[in-house]
Design a protein around this nucleic acid. Structure first.
Lengths: 181, 181
DNA sequence: CCGAAATTTCAGTATTTTCTGAAATTTGAT
DNA sequence: ATCAAATTTCAGAAAATACTGAAATTTCGG
């Protein structure tokens, strides 16, 4: 590993724990991400000094997140892995997986809590707060879904506009109300 | 704790670990969030059956995330805590803190990696990938910054528009190119 | 400024998570 | 079908993290 790659890999290892993934998984991903060619488990285990079985588990985890893809090399029985190199694609995948793993379970918990009949004043207040949380998460979940469908270029354009979108919104608001009158 | 509150608290405890926070911290937050009045550390420790010192640490953590606010009750020396109940405000705070804790360190690591002179072909490829990641994170970071300044109402409107924003963008694109010709 | 009430710190323990190595299973070329 | 190469599983060891209780510190009413 070159010093450049080493510092990238180390950073992802440390960051991993702030996310839900552990150090090993973070490092494996970083290594695959910057590698010019697909890597096999043995190469990864060797480079990072982890046991073969630990790497096997890490790769399973990364596959479950759809962050790495399995490749086959002609005339080689081993499994090779590479990562999509397009940052947008990675972001989409991550957003989608997180929605599935974090937002959806929370939404369903909130929905069933909101169906309960509050048994006291305390529960009434609790439900109000939960309603606010539910509505926001649902809104964001749907938004993700919509945005997921935009192509990278449009998405980038939108982001670069940033707060200026507000101006656009005001403008269309005026057009609408203008047409009504 | 009523059964309703209990299930909410339990869910946050479990979810906590998918985030970077632990079970205790997740539960403390959930309890404060749905409580109709500010709570003091003793009440929290009692309700959740955690030691007083554990609750103290958890509250410190939540304060560092700016998810709970310290309150004082007249004629009572104890510290009471409550949580902003506006879901949008919470989302903003979280986005801001995560940017600070996750995006900024990564950006600075990437920036210094990109300043290095690549020592081999492998490093060249690595830098290309890092560049893609850097640019996306920077774009998102700036976008967060912009969006942070919009009021809740505008933000909600934007989200509800979802993918239809694209139409708006196409429209303005036409207006612009139209005015040039 | 005293002292009781409250909070924080921290060393040690408990629990959880990660990691390994050996054994079991799967895979695919012959 | 065979069997060696490759992958996976899993029980237990190692490491990291969370939690407690006692002691230290801070805080504020008097």
């Amino acid at each position: 590993m070159t010093p450049l790659v080493h510092s990238f890999v180390a950073h992802f290892g440390e960051m991993g724990s702030r996310w839900g993934i552990n150090r090993t998984v973070g490092q494996i991903y970083a290594l695959i991400f910057v590698s010019p060619k697909p890597l096999c488990a043995d190469e990864i285990a060797e480079t990072l000094s982890y046991s073969r079985s630990n790497v096997s588990m890490g790769l399973k985890e990364l596959q479950s997140w759809r962050l790495v893809k399995l490749r086959h090399v002609a005339g080689d029985r081993r499994e090779y892995f590479d990562a999509p190199s397009d940052a947008w694609e990675i972001f989409r995948t991550l957003a989608e997986e997180r929605r599935r793993r974090e937002m959806e379970p929370t939404l369903s918990m909130l929905r069933s809590a909101l169906l309960e009949t509050p048994s006291c004043e305390e529960d009434k207040v609790a439900q109000e707060r939960m309603k606010g949380m539910h509505d926001l998460i649902e809104l964001m979940s749907n938004w993700f879904d919509d945005v997921q469908r935009l192509d990278a270029q449009t998405l980038a354009k939108l982001m670069r506009m940033g707060a200026r979108v507000q101006k656009l919104l005001e403008l269309t608001g005026q057009l609408k109300s203008g047409s009504k009158e």
